[in-house]
Each structure stands twice: as C-alpha cells, then as structure tokens.
Amino acid sequence: MPAHGYEPPGDADDGEHRDDALLTARASEGDEEAFETLVRRHGPLLLRLATRLLGSRSEAEDAVQESFVSAWRRLPEFRENSTFGTWMYRIVTNRCLNMLRARRPVVALDAVSEPAAAEHQVSPARAAEGRAAVEALSKAMVVLSPEQRVCWVLREVDGLPYEAIADMVGISQEAARGRVFRARRQLTEAMVAWR
C-alpha cells in the first residue's frame, strides 16, 4: 500500500497505471467489466480517503459509491491528462468537501472514526493515552471549516504536496498553504489545551 494515494499524472513507468489506462478506455466505451476492475482496484484507497475526510465510515461508503457512479457517467468525457486514480481522488475529495459543507453547523461529536481493536504491544497506560490523544484530535477537528479540514487531511494524513492539494480542490497553492496553516494552528492550540 503506498504511503499516500496521490499519483502524479503521466507516470507511465508503473505497469498498473498503464493497465488502468487500458481499462479506462474500455470502460469509457461501455465495458462494465473493465469498470468493475477499476472499482475493485481503487475502491479501498478511496474509502480510506473519504473516511479520513468525513470521519465516518458509513458516510464514506456512500460518498465513494456515488463518486464511482458519477465517474461512470462522466467517463466518456474523461481525457487522458490525468490517471483514473487521480481523477477519482479528485471526485471523492470534492464530493466529501460538499458533504462537509452541507453538514454545517456541526452539532454532534460523532466525527470520530470507529476505532479498531487496538492490538499493539504497548503498555495499557500508553495505549490509553494514545487513544485519548486520537479522540482529542477528532474532537478538535470539529472546529475546522470544511475547506480547512479537507486541505489539512490531504496534507497531514495523506501526505499530498501543496500543489496537488491545490489541484484537487481547485484553489491556488497559496490558498492551500493558508488553509493548512490555519488548520494546524487551531489543532495545535486544541491539543496543547488538552495536554
């Protein structure tokens, strides 16, 4: 699994990208089996992205499902100036951004992803502190605007370069840096208060 989901466009050395290109060409001409392969191949990563952006696995599933259906309908217009993966990443990001905007004002502190059963070999005290820190972070993220949240998650959790964030969301690099900075500012402040 790559460290982050962003694939620079035009990376033609990767065998899977070229395979994606083949599948995308077929799918855009109505080949459903090819599209199913693409869904299967890119679904897990996009689910992870959407869950990080929305904080909810079930909402993430809806977002990714709708994104794929939308992609199917728009495939005939898909031009090969980016890869299918990058294109889907952008669709999912923007759909999640709109969902976050539609959520406001934020009411509940339900923006915590369901925790997995922690099976780490750490002392219970440390594990508890780690868990508590993660929960504190989730709560702190509630104060972020949708735009800040999206840019910050892309930067901090997915590790995207600022140029990519700007491209994904359709803003300038400067604006992307600004949003990430403001998000960090608020989050560090909240985490300091928690400590």
Binding site: E32, G43, L47, S113, P115, H120, V157, M191
Partner: peptide
C-alpha cells in the same frame, strides 16, 4: 497524534460491498 490515528485505521481490503452497489 496523526500517526497514532493512522495506526488505528482499519485495513480497507474488501471493497466487495462497494463494488456490488456501484455495479
């Protein structure tokens, strides 16, 4: 803390339900 949060994420290996619903 972000790294810790990442470690807690479940593995999204199975996209079967998603595939079914989309198709």
């Amino acid at each position: 803390v972000v790294r810790q949060a990442r470690e807690e994420e479940p593995e999204y290996e199975d996209a079967n339900v998603l595939v079914e619903r989309v198709m």
